[in-house]
Simulated assay, not measured.
Amino acid sequence: MWKTPGRFSLTGRWCCFPQDPLEDLDAWTESVDKVLACKTGQAAFRDFLRSEHSEENLQFWLACEDYKKIKSVPEMITCANRIYSEFVQTEAPRQINIDCHTREKISSNICQPSLTSFDAAQKLIYCLMSRDCYPRFLTSDIYAALLRRSEATHCWSLACKDAPGPRLAHHLRPEPFQADLEPVATHRLGEMRLTGDSQQGRGSPKRIPATERPSETRPDCADPARLPLNGFTPC
């Protein structure tokens, strides 16, 4: 089984390409070469060909591309026989649509294959895809779904670019309010303090007269004669 790109769905999800690039989507309208040049294009085009029951054309073309990269003779012979039995010979499971002359020529040379054994058949299949399948692909629902996805991704990227980042949002966040600290008035005269009940939420703030507050233990106020007067302690 030849490795081919993952299947594309109209929901915009891929089986094999979680981060498929869509930057060159507009370039696909230039030629079928632009579609075949990237994995995303191959996957989308293959899914379209599957809907037309001609998926074997792309599979054969990709198999020939891999075949021409083989370096060792034993591997080339094995791969040539595999391509021939799967795509070329009569009644093959994925028989491609080529003329009888090209098919017979490949059959006669399959015992001694070369890197150019399938070039003529590959060229015929390329022309078939370029002239027949490719124009319909550009008007298909699959390509339209890709265009919508590309536009939505672009809008989302712009929105993220204009939005404040996490660091900025953190600085804009207000400081937490420390409710567990005991409030202490800055002025001694008429000072307000919370009793134990009010600190625990069981009462309301009460004014504690200055005469009821315990005397401070500062050394310069240790003289009993210098008691607080009207809430003010002279030192």
Score class of each variant (00 low, 15 high):
170 H>V: 03
73 V>Q: 11
39 K>W: 01
191 E>R: 13
149 R>T: 09
113 P>Q: 06
83 I>W: 01
114 S>P: 03
34 K>T: 06
36 L>F: 08
114 S>M: 02
111 C>R: 08
150 S>G: 05
58 L>D: 03
104 E>Q: 11
159 A>G: 05
81 N>Y: 03
22 L>H: 06
170 H>M: 06
187 H>K: 08
218 R>K: 11
75 E>P: 01
198 S>N: 08
72 S>A: 09
91 E>N: 14
58 L>M: 15
196 G>I: 04
6 G>V: 05
48 F>V: 08
111 C>Q: 11
228 P>T: 01
66 D>G: 13
223 D>I: 03
180 D>W: 12
77 I>M: 10
204 S>Y: 00
62 L>E: 09
42 Q>R: 15
137 F>M: 10
172 L>S: 00
56 E>Y: 04
108 S>I: 02
44 A>K: 02
139 T>S: 14
34 K>W: 12
104 E>W: 09
109 N>H: 13
91 E>M: 05
210 A>R: 00
133 C>N: 04
41 G>D: 11
188 R>Y: 05
115 L>Q: 04
60 F>C: 06
36 L>H: 01
70 I>L: 15
107 S>D: 09
227 L>I: 08
90 T>A: 12
207 R>F: 14
38 C>I: 12
142 I>V: 06
84 Y>V: 01
108 S>M: 08
195 T>P: 08
103 R>E: 05
81 N>W: 03
25 L>Q: 03
143 Y>M: 07
134 Y>G: 03
138 L>Q: 01
66 D>K: 15
190 G>P: 00
178 Q>C: 14
197 D>V: 07
42 Q>M: 13
199 Q>M: 15
106 I>R: 03
107 S>G: 04
191 E>F: 00
170 H>T: 11
126 Y>T: 04
173 R>M: 08
205 P>F: 03
98 I>H: 11
50 R>P: 00
201 G>R: 10
121 A>K: 06
42 Q>K: 13
61 W>F: 11
95 Q>G: 05
157 S>E: 10
101 H>G: 00
95 Q>R: 14
163 A>P: 01
203 G>E: 12
123 K>L: 07
13 R>T: 13
10 L>F: 08
32 V>S: 03
186 T>N: 06
63 A>I: 04
157 S>I: 04
